[in-house]
C-alpha cells in the first residue's frame, strides 16, 4: 500500500549538506500498522513527511496505492493527498473553527454540499466519541480530545492510508492508550493502512504489526514486531526494547543489598527475557531441577506479537551449592542473567 524505494533526502544548511535520509526503503502491506521508531533527530519526521511529499525527497520513489507520487503535478498531488490522512503531534487544529467546522474543513475543500457535510461530520464525531463537543472550540478541549478531532478530520476524506507523526507524544499515558486503541480500531474497522513514527516503544508494542528502527537517516533493522522483540540484532533496538521495561530495585532491597556473599546471604538476580526461551516455564524447571526457591521481588512482563518478554528481579534461596548451576541453566535458556548483589 505504501512503498518507499531508496528514498534519500538532503538539506542544505549554510554551506554544508546534511543528509536526513539515506537510501530508505520500506513496504507497508495493505491493512497493516507499520511503526518507525527512532530517537529525535534520527530522521523519522522527515521520513513520514516524505510519504505525502510535504517534504520532497532528493531522490527515490514513493508509491502509495499504486501511484508514484513524485511524478504528479501539484494539482494531482493535492487530490492524491486526500487519500493519505495525516495526524500530528501538536494536532494542528484550526483555532478559529469549532470542532464541527474543523472536521468539515477537508469536505469544504472538495466542495461537498452542505447537507452531505453535516451527515458525514456527525458520523465521524460519533466514531471518535466527541458528538457532544461539536460546537466547542478546540481551545476548550483536552489533548486527547484534540487528537480525536484531528483523527475525525483526516478520516473525512475516506483515506486509504493514515500517517501518524508522533501522534501520541504530547499525551499522557492513559490518553495515549485510548488514542492507540482508537487507531487500532480504525485500522481494523475501516481497513486503513497505518504508518506511524514514534520514539516510544510502548506504541510499537501495543499496536504495530511491523516495525523499523531508524538511526542517522538509515533503517537499521526491520521486521515483524514479534521477530524484532524476540531477536533484536542492533544495539539501538535492544536499547529501545529495554527502555520500554523499566525496573527499579525496591528501596528496602537497595538498603540491605551487599556486594559480596558472606555465606548466609541470598543472591538477587535480574533476569532479562527477550528470546523464545521464555515460552518454557523456566523458573519452575530451575526450582525443581536444582532444589531452589524463588521470590519474585518485582517483574515486568509483556507480550509483543507472539513473543513474551520482560525483566524480573528474583531472590534465590534453597540449596546453596546449586546456585551456580541454576544461573547457568538460565543462561543456557538465553535469559540474560545478572547477579545484582546479595541480600
Amino acid at each position: 500500500m505504501i512503498e518507499l524505494k531508496n528514498v534519500t533526502k538532503t538539506f542544505h544548511q549554510k554551506d554544508r549538506i546534511v543528509s536526513a535520509l539515506s537510501d530508505v526503503s520500506l513496504t507497508v502491506p495493505p491493512g497493516k500498522i507499520f511503526g518507525v521508531i527512532g530517537t529525535s533527530g534520527a530522521g523519522k519526521s522527515t521520513l513520514i513527511r516524505c510519504v505525502n511529499l510535504l517534504e520532497r525527497p532528493t531522490s527515490g520513489e514513493i508509491i502509495v496505492d499504486g501511484k508514484a507520487l513524485m511524478q504528479l503535478s501539484n494539482a494531482e498531488l493535492a487530490i492524491e493527498r486526500r487519500q493519505i490522512g495525516m495526524i500530528f503531534q501538536h494536532f494542528n487544529l484550526l483555532s478559529s473553527r469549532t470542532v464541527f467546522d474543523n472536521v468539515a474543513f477537508p469536505l469544504e475543500l472538495t466542495g461537498t454540499p452542505k447537507n452531505e457535510i453535516k451527515t458525514r461530520v456527525l458520523e465521524l464525531l460519533q466514531l471518535v466519541g466527541l458528538s457532544e463537543k461539536a460546537n466547542d472550540y478546540p481551545a476548550s478541549l483536552s489533548g486527547g480530545q484534540k487528537q480525536r478531532v484531528a483523527i475525525a478530520r483526516t478520516l473525512a476524506n475516506n483515506p486509504k492510508v493514515l500517517l501518524c507523526d508522533e501522534a501520541t507524544s504530547a499525551l499522557d499515558p492513559a490518553t495515549t492508550r485510548s488514542i492507540l486503541n482508537l487507531l487500532k480500531d480504525i485500522n481494523r474497522r475501516l481497513n486503513i493502512t497505518v504508518l506511524l513514527i514514534t520514539h516510544q516503544m510502548e506504541v510499537v508494542k501495543s499496536i504495530c504489526d511491523e516495525v523499523a528502527v531508524i538511526s542517522h537517516g538509515k533503517l537499521i533493522e526491520q521486521g515483524s514486531v514479534g521477530e524484532i522483540f524476540a531477536d533484536p540484532k542492533h544495539e539501538l533496538t535492544k536499547e529501545f526494547i529495554s527502555s520500554s521495561l523499566h525496573l527499579e530495585i525496591p528501596a528496602v532491597y537497595e538498603e540491605k543489598l551487599q556486594k559480596e556473599d558472606n555465606g548466609t546471604l541470598n543472591p538477587l538476580l535480574k533476569l532479562e527475557m527477550t528470546g523464545k526461551s521464555v515460552n518454557e516455564p523456566v523458573i519452575s524447571e530451575v526450582s525443581r531441577l536444582f532444589d531452589t526457591n524463588f521470590k519474585i521481588v518485582s517483574a515486568q512482563m509483556d507480550q509483543a506479537g507472539d513473543v513474551n518478554f520482560g525483566v524480573m528481579l528474583i531472590e534465590l534461596s534453597g540449596k546453596r551449592e546449586n546456585y551456580n548451576a541454576a544461573i547457568q541453566y538460565f543462561i543456557s535458556k538465553h535469559i540474560k542473567t545478572e547477579i545484582i548483589g546479595y541480600v
Binding site: 505525502n52 493527498r81 494542528n92
Partner: peptide
C-alpha cells in the same frame, strides 16, 4: 503555528484555499 499550513496541505488544500480558509481566518 507552521503546523496549520502543513495540516492543510496534507488534507489536499490548494495554496488559494490555504490563504482564505486557513491563514486569513486564523
Amino acid at each position: 503555528p507552521s503546523g496549520l499550513i502543513e495540516a492543510a496541505r496534507a488534507l489536499g488544500a490548494t495554496p488559494l484555499q490555504i490563504v482564505y480558509k486557513v491563514l486569513l481566518p486564523e
